[in-house]
């Protein structure tokens, strides 16, 4: 179970990227939705230890995300993965595997993972020769190198062609069958509808909804409901701002 408690991330220039965010995730595939810049990636980066929260906490099965021990249980695929370009895919998998306790997985295991994501044939090619889609697939494969219980995937389907997307979604379903939990960041609503058990909607750093996809949609399409909830939030925020400005000017006049 991943628990976010009153999580806030404040940047000096940009203000709150994540604002008092609380959520408990305990379903096989959780889709985290939001527009670009909504705070999805910031939440994920804090979960895997790339960023320090300004306040609040994250725990993974009760272990604080700051604790290195929590990383034994997770696999992370960053958005637009960058690699050591002169390594081959198999070498990169070995390298990633060696960073874990009880390191030294066998090549067969790494090759099986490369097979799973569909780049086994390119295992001995240097990564610098890979297309964007192949890089996405390798990013996915390295996230599985420690046999993690939790997978955090940041826009994993970006850059993949339709067949690649279908294959990756199939991999996610397989992971679900294996009992792993997937936390998926995306702004592509169609994919979420297809694979996710629950969704969380984040907008301007705030969590607007968390729960089942079906209950959220209530007969409408996910896109329609997503737009409604985001626009309703913006309208509410604008109204509050107008009231605040009006009261400030009234105080100034009196």
């Amino acid at each position: 179970m991943v628990e976010f408690s009153h999580l806030t991330k404040t940047y000096k220039k940009k203000g709150n990227a994540v604002d008092d965010f609380s959520l408990t995730v305990n379903v096989p595939i959780f889709g985290f939705l939001g527009q670009n810049g909504a705070g999805k990636t910031t939440v994920m980066k804090m979960t895997v230890g790339l960023l320090e929260p300004t306040s609040g906490s994250i725990t993974i099965d009760g272990v604080p995300s700051r604790d290195l021990a929590s990383r034994q249980k997770i696999g992370f695929m960053p958005e637009t993965p960058y690699f050591y370009e002169r390594m081959t895919a198999l070498e990169f998998m070995r390298f990633c595997g060696s960073l874990f306790q009880n390191a030294g997985g066998r090549d067969e295991a790494y090759e099986a993972l490369l097979k799973k994501v569909g780049i086994y044939g390119a295992r001995n090619f240097e990564i610098k020769t890979f297309s964007k889609g192949m890089r996405q697939r390798l990013g996915f494969a390295q996230a599985l190198v420690n046999d993690p219980e939790y997978l955090l995937l940041d826009e994993p389907l970006d850059g993949l062609d339709p067949i690649g997307r279908r294959e990756m979604k199939e991999v996610m379903r397989d992971l679900k069958k294996e009992g792993r939990k997937v936390f998926l960041n995306t702004h592509i609503l169609y994919d979420v509808e297809e694979v996710c058990d629950e969704v969380g909607i984040i907008h301007q750093g705030k969590l607007l909804y968390a729960g089942s996809v079906r209950a959220f949609c209530a007969g409408k399409s996910l896109e329609e409901r997503f737009t409604e909830i985001v626009e309703a939030h913006d309208a509410k925020a604008d109204a509050a701002k107008t009231v605040a400005v009006a009261s400030a000017s009234e105080i100034a006049q009196s």
């Binding site: 230890g49 021990a69 960053p78 960058y82 990633c96 960073l99 874990f100």
Partner: peptide, 14 residues
Amino acid sequence: DRKVVYFLFSKPVT
């Protein structure tokens, strides 16, 4: 700069 460290620091590496 090229964010290769994202792979490292999301693993048990300080």
